[in-house]
Design a protein around this nucleic acid. Structure first.
Lengths: 338, 338
DNA sequence: CGGCATATTGAAGAACATCAAGTAAAGTGG
DNA sequence: CCACTTTACTTGATGTTCTTCAATATGCCG
């Protein structure tokens, strides 16, 4: 498999060459640009598979580069990662909202950078499935609005009229439904690259669920008109969503069976497994999850959920240290009755 | 609204004219044919909106008429109702399997006939949505196989590889899912004109559920290849199933909430409401339903379901006479906590 | 460091499942 | 068509599971 090419836009020579060397050692082809203007030229010319770009630069800063490249059809879909010294949140937000795919703060260690790059290359593949070139309606993401949300923000609530359908570019979102007593069930946990909020659109119904952000997230909003148009006129899109819907349906059928007849113990165990699949990526099986989330995933009360956690701790399937849960025995939790 | 035209094929003059008169009084236009051969000619010529046809006739019997008309594109979709003296099951089965839409046994009373005709006229409308004329793949029902199933027969079970998707032409079918302890949840109750068994097809998965017939049913089987082809090539079909899927999804989300937090009492009440919507048509709110079905709809044990039924009986919301349930207070059952 | 939110444990009781036993209904074969 | 068998329905008693209310503990934030 051919290794990808990466463009590095960075004014500091030391840093630039350092990164370049690292990437070449990993087998990537690299291009270097010492400022924003040259960076843009080079990007348009070489069409790299990914762009790393500093924010603070003479001539043209990183935001400018991103802005210009997002205006060109050829460079629009190239994964774009910001490099920055300051780790300020507002800063990151601005970059993300402009359409950057990721954000790495200097100083970074090598593996951090390499992992981020690999992730983005993998994902760009996925998104391109939707970005079939052609007429004005052929791109689901053509009129996307990028937004950042903080934890606990509500994206939409039960009863809202859908204005957008959502693509979770980065972060975590829970989709919940409440009964009249105020008790919640988690219908779905969304993580990177999941679509959500499209369920009622086809029926011309208002949202029947609430979408709440679990941790800072970058969300692409797609106008419903675009969505419904593409659904009718673009086979790829309609087939994709048919599959999404039926997959979802099968998942919910399983969940129904679980809620009807499984013990709370089993349901909490399943919730933990599902959570660790989303939270505990790259090796470290640690997660800080509010107990109420676990409870509403298992369809039980908070107290009962906690009791089960205590049991699992006693059985050494998990560990809890300052309310942070560590999965010790994933397989055991997943296995039947136990 | 223009009243529909009906062709009556019947060798007995008295009966024929009797029916004709009745229908004309109801505002229908009628054509009469004294034998099968003439019936076919007339059907092709006049293209009526519905055909009533005797089975036992000289020249060409009812089965023959149906067979011939189903070979012609123009008459294929005309609702076809058999009139017959003998009410034998095997007889009815043969007719239904050939593609008749309904079956009326003589002697019949006037309202019975009129109701059957009206139902069929209403329904033919619905089916035509799928029957867009044109190329060879344009008709979802083009290669349908019509089958009759008796109560308790299994149409497919969990793990089966889908060979068909199903359209329930007449009858009732439950879609259930079992957990390892053998406990069942009803995922869906299908009645006339529902599609089922298409959920896993898009994912190339085997059936994750079991479809069991609740009462004698006529089912149209559509080869999966036809279905998947149409899904890709026919916008009407793909949009229709997108909507079906999302509607289904919303229903299941509600069911999840219910299973998680509603009391058994409420769940059993909901099950009764759902059952009466399907069983208790045209006024008489009576139904003979196995308790196990109610239990698996409510996600509880049979005993508990029965206890709730006894409670409802005591509260005069329902009545039970020789294990037949009559809904006395539909609204009350539907209303919240109570 | 105090105040607020979240997490944890305890105890009491309601809700529900299970087992057991009896009754009514529905097939079945002579 | 009837005795007989089998299946489905119904009720009671008992124990488990889970919720609820209450009290305490811990972590978090300015």
């Amino acid at each position: 498999m051919k290794k990808s090419s990466i463009l590095i836009i960075e004014d500091n020579v030391d840093i630039r060459e350092n990164i370049s060397e690292l990437l070449m050692l990993s087998g990537y082809t690299t291009y270097e640009a010492p400022n924003g203007k040259l960076g843009v030229t080079m990007a348009l010319e070489r069409l790299p598979d990914l762009i790393l770009c500093d924010i603070m630069m003479p001539e043209l800063d990183g935001y400018g580069v991103l802005h210009i490249l997002s205006k060109h059809q050829q460079t629009l879909h190239i994964p774009f990662i910001f490099l920055t010294a300051k780790a300020e949140k507002t800063d990151m937000r601005r970059g993300m909202t402009l359409g950057a795919d990721d954000y790495i703060t200097k100083p970074f260690d090598e593996s951090e950078l390499l992992v981020a790059i690999e992730n983005r290359l993998k994902k760009s593949h996925h998104k391109l499935e939707f970005a079939t070139v052609g007429g004005q309606f052929n791109d689901l993401f053509a009129h996307k609005v990028i937004k950042t949300y903080g934890a606990k923000q509500l994206i939409y609530t039960e009863g809202d009229t859908p204005a957008y359908i959502y693509f979770l570019h980065q972060g975590k979102v829970k989709i919940v439904k409440m009964n009249k007593d105020g008790k919640e069930v988690v219908l779905e946990l969304c993580s990177n690259d999941d679509f959500f909020g499209y369920w009622g659109v086809l029926e011309d119904q208002n949202h029947q669920e609430t979408a709440e952000v679990l941790e800072d997230s970058v969300i692409w909003q797609i106008p419903v008109e675009d969505f419904t148009l593409l659904l009718v006129h673009n086979r790829e899109v309609s087939m994709r969503f048919l599959k999404l819907l039926s997959k979802n349906l099968l998942l919910k059928e399983n969940k129904m069976l679980e809620l009807a007849y499984e013990s709370v113990r089993k349901r909490v165990a399943n919730a933990l497994v599902a959570l660790s699949d989303i939270y505990a990526v790259n090796g470290h099986f640690c997660m800080r999850v509010p107990r109420e989330l676990i409870a509403s995933m298992a369809g039980t009360s908070v107290e009962t959920a906690i009791r089960m956690l205590s049991e699992f701790k006693a059985d050494a399937y998990i560990d809890i240290a300052s309310s942070e849960i560590t999965i010790l025995n994933y397989e055991m939790l997943k296995k039947a009755p136990f």
